[in-house]
Design a protein around this nucleic acid. Sequence first.
RNA 1: GGAGAAAUGGCAGAGUGGUCGAAUGCACUGGUCUUGAAAACCAGCGUACCGCAAGGUACCGGGGGUUCGAAUCCCUCUUUCUCCGCCA
Length: 434
Amino acid sequence: MLTVSYIRENTALVKERLTKRGFGQMDKIDEAISLDDTRKVTQNELDQLLAENNKASKEIGALFKQGKRDEATEIQQKVAANKETIKGLQATMDNTKNALNEVLYLIPNVPHESVPAGQTDEDNEVFKTGYETLPELDANASLPHWELAKKYDIIDFETGVKITGAGFPLFKGKGAQLKRALINFFLYEASEAGYLEVMPPHLVNEKSAFGTGQLPDKEGQMYHTRQPKGDDGAFVDDFYLIPTAEVPVTNIYRDEIVNEADFPIRMCGHTPCFRREVGSYGKDVRGLNRVHQFDKVEIVQIAHPDKSYDTLHEMLAHVEGLLNKLELPYRILTLCGGDLGFTSALTYDFEVYSAAQKKWLEVSSVSNFETFQANRLKLRFRNSDGKMQLAHTLNGSALALARIVACLLENHQTPDGIRMPEALKAYTRFEMID
RNA sequence: GGAGAAAUGGCAGAGUGGUCGAAUGCACUGGUCUUGAAAACCAGCGUACCGCAAGGUACCGGGGGUUCGAAUCCCUCUUUCUCCGCCA
């Protein structure tokens, strides 16, 4: 979330930039400031009364020691009177703070100045293309991946439905091996690029889900595991299945003060990702296009605020390198204000052209969150002036598995089978799926 | 799942009702000394908020309570450790 002080100091800018997103609750900005005003005034009064009582308590102690009971009792009465007022002010304080937080939770991140205006994904701008001409498939080899999956018996959607339900595909034989090879390939490339490999938990607690901003914004999109404990409304095992490794990996640094010299902090990890995908029925859901569980290697960086946009472009280059090695035609889009995620300041999406489906599939999303996550995470560093400052967090998929598999199958199919790109052969240990 | 113990600053660890935001040691930062380093010595060293400032307030796992006054007493929750049981 944004800090109130940032909103105070940049009110006009915040409003102008949020307009780009089509943010419809602009009154929340002024509401936040006015709640913060109330908070300040209240704290001022409250602190004064508390100071009075603290002082009085010390006097009472001293008077008791001297045996001056009457004088002590007199002051006691004054303290008691203050206590009532204090209670009231404290309640006002708590309510105001809560109300302020509720308002701040509703305000999305301020888009970077380079974010194009626009409402939907149709307004996204092509930032770069990674191909010369879009591939055209041989008439004898132009099947969509769900048919290739059946033809070579490598992905079994029906059995996935039997075991769990729709959107939980079963990978078999070379299909399973291809996935494992891709994961290894991505992790190896990330390690080579200086990312520390981590294997985080796949379930996270509420604090972690809050830290990276999945809560309260995306409550309904995550699988939730809690069990009732007794009859009093309490729960045990209250966890969320991670929708991305971003959540556990970024939360490694929740409530941490890092050394400025340690920037940038680079981490990568492979995890399955679980998404309920509520509200996306019927659209682009065939085969691997949209599933409830998929694998992903995520890269995460924690960067100095002055350097985070360099970092973002470094991450972009890393993802490009992967796609080039996989010999896939891609393009990079700058997401417009309306399509930008709630927590992001600037996001680039990578799309790979799926030749058989004749459409672009999103395979990676690389974002700079600036201080939006760091503020909730309380992820800070001491700057060269000796002051505490929020760090910048960034992350990107490098890469998301299910759709990459779909693109590989479709783009590299030949009448003789599906050929593996050169860079991947060392990992798959086979050259063709046939 | 059963029994017991514990939770204090970056770490270790004292503190059982007022003079405690908290001893001491280590770590860290600056300085003295040294050709340099080490050692020794001196000084500094939590976070957030309010305030132009002086200064003030809050925080000793979380929440609540007792008291004029709580790190310290009471209740409750959570977590960790040890032992037993179960188990990939």
